[in-house]
Computed example of a mutant assay.
Amino acid sequence: MKLSAPIFRLKRQAKLLARTERIQLAAALDRIARQEGYAAWSHLAHRQTANDPAQNILNALTPGDLVLLGARPGHGKTTLGLQLVLNAVSSGRTGCFFTLEMLNRDVLHTLRSLGADPDRVASSLVIDTSDDINADHIISIVRAAPSNALAVVDYLQLLDQKRSNPDLDTQVSALRNFARTSGQTIVLTSQIDRIFEAEGRSMPGLSDVRLPNPLDLSLFTKTCFLHEGEIEISKAA
């Protein structure tokens, strides 16, 4: 049964419903689930577990991949990036989440909304929200992690926002070389140009990646695009 909206949007609807009608969140979630054709939220959540997009993406990745995860704002790319990290941790790997967009408290809040206890996963999870994030910084942290770590960087277009940082192409080249030689897997979330939505296509592609500065997109080994709850994973051309 296809949902009317992605899970993360249904959760937002439930939270809004709980506030406006002053009911418990659990009751609001169940009401949303019934609107979607399920008896309760637990049944709907089971559907999500059975078709876990983050796990599907992880299953498609191999050590040494440099992955571009692209979507328009509001389509859940950052949340999906965090879920990738959590899934990696739950399978015994080390996860690293670097963000130039979120504060530490926001990352922790999102982790909890995904059902994770930040304290319980702290030994296998690195959260970095510093202003020093660039390719060299990311490499220094991930190099110290055990083999087969997964790093998510949120997001691509912010890596060279500081004038003191190398240009975007130089940084992504460094990340590609490091991933290939170390066997660590790195995922960079990315903005998609708004013209994609104006054209009415069902899924963005590499040509839709917003590039304020030059970047050789062939540096990525795989791409993952997200739109309206649908995901498309492929090898980069």
Rank of each mutant, 00 (worst) to 15 (best):
P53Y: 03
T20P: 00
Q83T: 12
P6T: 02
A45T: 05
R9W: 01
L125H: 09
A27E: 15
D65A: 12
K11G: 02
T110C: 11
A26G: 02
A18Y: 03
L17E: 10
G76P: 07
Q48T: 00
H109K: 14
A116N: 07
A88M: 02
A116Y: 11
R93C: 01
Q83L: 13
A54Q: 05
G37M: 10
D119W: 11
T110Y: 08
L114Q: 14
H46R: 10
T62D: 11
G74C: 02
K77W: 04
L69Q: 14
N87W: 00
H46N: 04
A145Y: 01
L111N: 02
L66T: 03
L25M: 10
R12A: 13
T94C: 12
N87Y: 00
S123G: 08
I7F: 06
D30M: 10
A135N: 04
A60V: 00
H109P: 00
V126I: 15
A40F: 09
S123Q: 14
G37P: 08
T79I: 11
A18F: 03
V85F: 03
R143T: 14
A45M: 05
A33Q: 06
Q13H: 05
R112A: 13
V67A: 01
R9K: 08
V67G: 07
A144I: 03
L125Q: 09
H46E: 11
N134P: 04
S4N: 09
I23N: 01
N87V: 00
P118E: 12
I32P: 01
L66V: 12
L68V: 13
Q55T: 10
T62I: 02
I32H: 08
G74E: 10
L10V: 03
L29D: 04
L29N: 04
Q13K: 06
N59L: 11
A5N: 02
L44S: 02
G115H: 05
R22Q: 13
S4G: 08
V85R: 01
L29R: 08
C96A: 15
L68Q: 05
